[in-house]
Simulated assay, not measured.
Amino acid sequence: MNSARHSVFRSVAAHGILILYTVIALFPVFVIVINSFKSRRAIFNEPLALPTPETFDLIGYQTVLKQGDFFQYFLNSMTVTVGSLFFVLMFGAMAAFALSEYRFRGNLLMGLYLALGIMIPIRLGTVAILQIMVASGLVNTLTALVLVYTAQGLPLAIFILSEFMRSVSDDLKNAGRIDGLSEYKIFFRLVLPLVRPALATVAVFTMIPIWNDLWFPLILAPSEETKTITLGSQVFIGQFVTNWNAVLAALGLAIVPVLVLYLIFSRQLIRGITAGAVK
């Protein structure tokens, strides 16, 4: 009885902490959104105040839609993010399944090698990456960004998913083998559905750095046809003058996909984050 009460208490506490963290994390988003609907003077005079009939202004959104190809930037970001997430989750899940399921010489060393990317920032290899892309003819292409972000996201995906896959029952997988299922069918039909919370967690935490990144789009794909939304919004930031209405409007529109993804995967995300706290 006491054990059940403690388990419920831990679950409620974990969900409460996550909700509090979400509120704190979303406060900057709230500030950006409300200021994107205000005049320039109101932004600086009362940055935390809600828009009023006197301060309400859509000049930022009008500027964003007229200056630059915002929809192309948005489409580029969506293409790069969705493509990167697909490859990160697919290859990461396969590698994690192999490391957790099969025992072979060098298994531990292979896992540590694949996890090195968590400790070593990929930006340290920017010059080498640029040289590789130039030699491959992939500069100013979305493919270059997808490849880089896939390599960036794989270490964390493998690290998280391998721990979840080790918790999948061996009896279930052996039963599938007895029924004649191949290893691919065991992976796709039995294992992946059971680790959906982990997949959602990896997807959310992988998407945010990719969507918000400015470094690699600026270096690998700075042309007008391949600009991402984050790089495209920099057109409103000048050396001496910054159009804050347009910047905030662009950032406000860029936030929408992240919020939509969070709302879609929120239940799976919470289950993935709190899985270890409610056992």
Rank of each mutant, 00 (worst) to 15 (best):
I229F: 15
Y61K: 04
F159Q: 01
L112W: 10
E46W: 08
Q239W: 01
T22Q: 07
L253F: 09
M133E: 07
D171S: 06
H6C: 03
A250H: 02
S84V: 02
V191N: 00
A221V: 00
L85E: 04
D170T: 05
R40V: 09
L147S: 02
P47M: 00
K227Q: 12
I19P: 08
V12E: 00
E54F: 12
A277R: 01
F240H: 11
L192T: 05
F70N: 06
T242F: 14
A96K: 11
Q72R: 15
S11Y: 02
P197M: 09
F74R: 06
F188S: 06
V235W: 02
W215G: 12
V31H: 04
L253M: 15
L124T: 03
R166W: 08
E101M: 13
E163Y: 12
L114A: 11
M1I: 07
G111W: 02
F240C: 08
S77P: 06
F159D: 05
G176C: 06
N76H: 10
V204W: 12
A151F: 13
R103C: 04
V64S: 01
G176Q: 01
Q268D: 15
T81V: 04
S39V: 03
I59V: 10
F240L: 03
Q268E: 15
Q72D: 05
L114R: 11
R41G: 10
V23Q: 05
L263F: 15
V258Y: 03
V8L: 15
V195M: 07
L231H: 03
I229Y: 04
K66R: 14
P155C: 08
P51R: 09
S84K: 00
L85W: 06
A93D: 00
L269K: 06
A254Y: 08
L65F: 12
A250P: 02
I237D: 08
P53G: 14
F74Q: 11
P193E: 03
T81A: 08
S3D: 09
V8Y: 07
K38C: 01
T22E: 07
A95S: 15
V88C: 11
T141W: 09
Y61A: 06
V258S: 13
P222A: 13
L253V: 14
S100Y: 06
K173F: 00
V82S: 04
A128M: 11
R123G: 04
N76D: 05
T274L: 09
V29L: 08
A275Y: 10
G153E: 14
F187R: 04
I186V: 07
E183S: 02
L116N: 06
F104R: 13
E183W: 05
I34C: 09
R40P: 02
Q234V: 13
